[in-house]
Design a protein around this nucleic acid. Structure first.
Lengths: 330, 330
DNA sequence: TTGAAAGCGCTAACAA
DNA sequence: TTGTTAGCGCTTTCAA
């Protein structure tokens, strides 16, 4: 495996010049650069990551923290992040935070502190105060998809607006017995919490009382949605589900109860999941691929890479009609 | 950020001893190790990855090549791989091979050759001859989930047996007009190709002619399955789909055609996807999480890590009945 | 624009 | 069992 000396020898220059030519940092004459490039190509030379990192302090690697890999939203965001980073020559190191507390600590205490990454993208995780602190301490840019903390860049949709939009749509159709299925968290800074707030605000603004019995928690899976919906469907004419997976679960629950959608019950989800289309499910698309791309561009920009500056403010979402809502039967 | 010298000073030993104590390589007395551990903990010292790698030649990082992230099978395998690697203190660097040819080349030419990884896990990708060559050249263990190449370790289910099992089940129920929806590849060493062979062999063994009109290609998505199934359903009493996503698509196609499952048509899929349960879909579960775990253990074993030796031979699969098949209507 | 040379922070011979 | 020391393969001052 060729080293930088081999390239230097073949090109008839010093290793310093090879380094400058190949990295693009520092002045190199056009002719020299061409000779170095040719020599490098001829030898199949690729700079060794660890040596380069040790000498320069840059790793060209971004760490990604993600809570689950097998959920559509996360894996789609991840696709967006990796695509952009790869285009810019960055590697991606994946840290899958499970529910195992010891493992989680090890990621924050050790993995992230090995100086293996130049930056971190956090997907939909709510770090504790201490974890925020640790993220800041690594001394590299951190971008959160979701609500950020102090001095931490964030890419997010306005989840309260999402909840408000979906609920308002149902209200406008004339529904008043609108159930919500989502997740209960003690942390108000999460997407489910914000969507829930948006739901309640829309109801209040419309003068409709918020009925606690019309909320049912369920984890963000089809099964969770089915179980949660089964509890509220008997007393609701419409359901706002905090994710498309939950909404699909609600469709199954409706079927089990002999309810037709949308004749007997209207259902709206959130995400833009592939399945929403097949089920003819109204949904608020939040463009997860774009969120991932934007997060990646945000870290790269913070690292001084030449990327289109991501626009400030929350990322867009869009209500997509597919036929799962209609005015309530009278 | 504390360095190894700080730890050495605080513990009253040399840096070499700190290195030995913390890495576990080389002899250190019990008392010394305790002092070093205490000093390291006190200073919050974590070894710097690039310096350690440069000096030792080991990176404690495994590269993973995956074609798609947002498909259930791949992301589940990936979960299994990352879980095991993390348990052993290994990082995971993710390379998402898209269909972009230039990007793919860059991964094989550059990314994998930066000596950033100690080993590679390839998920469901069919490398070209040249790419196999490049994988071997990096001089590290490579494990493929799917059919391997020369001198490359492989973790795989016997996909021909999978196809044979599913088809045989339908034959035993009395079906003869059994359609297959899968993927067309010119490469015989892929899962879809093997499942297709198993399907045809089962038919031949049962004395049923293989009807080319009963095969329809579709990419491995719900949409692909729906379109493919729409073409073969009119002339089939049963469908063997090469994945659960395809099978779910077939369910939608059946519904669109006014066919009931299983009264009018029987459907079997492959994977063990969460949705199979909700749709009451018969499926061959291939335990992707276990496949991922086994692949990770295989690389680790090859690197001399202390892991349970993965059993040889193909990984298990299991036919799971959920009510989507029955004898053909007469 | 180039080259010489001093590290980057750690590991692993080797000697004690 | 421990310390001394010479690198690992690059990058980056600094001087020319």
């Amino acid at each position: 495996m060729a080293g930088i000396d081999d390239v230097a020898r073949l090109a008839g220059v010093s290793t310093a010049t090879v380094s400058r030519a190949l990295s693009g940092r520092g002045p190199v004459s056009k002719a020299t650069r061409a000779r170095v490039d040719a020599a490098a190509r001829r030898l199949g030379y690729v700079v060794q990551a660890s040596a380069s990192s040790l000498a320069s302090g840059r790793t060209r690697c971004i760490g990604i923290l993600v809570p689950l890999l097998d959920r559509w939203f996360y894996s789609t965001v991840l696709s967006g992040v990796t695509a952009v980073l790869m285009e810019h020559g960055y590697d991606v190191t994946l840290y899958n935070l499970t529910t195992d507390q010891a493992e989680r600590e090890r990621i924050f205490d050790t993995f992230l502190r090995r100086q293996r990454v130049d930056g971190v993208v956090v997907i939909a995780i709510t770090p504790t105060d201490r974890e925020w602190e640790q993220l800041r301490e690594i001394g590299h840019p951190v971008v959160v998809i979701g609500e950020g903390g102090d001095g931490i860049r964030s890419v997010m949709v306005d989840d309260e607006a999402v909840g408000h939009t979906a609920t308002t749509r149902l209200l406008e159709l004339g529904h008043t017995a609108i159930a919500h299925i989502g997740m209960v968290t003690d942390d108000p800074h999460t997407s489910p919490a914000a969507r829930h707030r948006g739901y309640e605000r829309a109801l209040r603004e419309a003068g409709v009382a918020v009925a606690p019995a019309l909320f049912a928690p369920g984890d963000f899976t089809v099964g969770g949605g089915r179980d949660a919906a089964a509890r509220v469907l008997p007393s609701a004419s419409a359901v706002f589900a905090a994710s498309d997976e939950l909404a699909v679960g609600a469709l199954f629950a409706a079927r089990d109860l002999g309810l037709r959608v949308p004749e007997d019950v209207s259902i709206v989800g959130v995400d833009g999941h592939e399945l929403a289309e097949f089920f003819g499910l109204d949904s608020i698309d939040q463009f997860p691929l774009q969120q991932g791309r934007r997060a990646a561009e945000t870290v790269l920009a913070a690292l001084g890479e030449d990327v289109p500056a991501p626009p400030p403010g929350p990322v867009p979402f869009r209500y997509v009609s597919r036929g799962s809502v209609r005015p309530p039967a009278t």
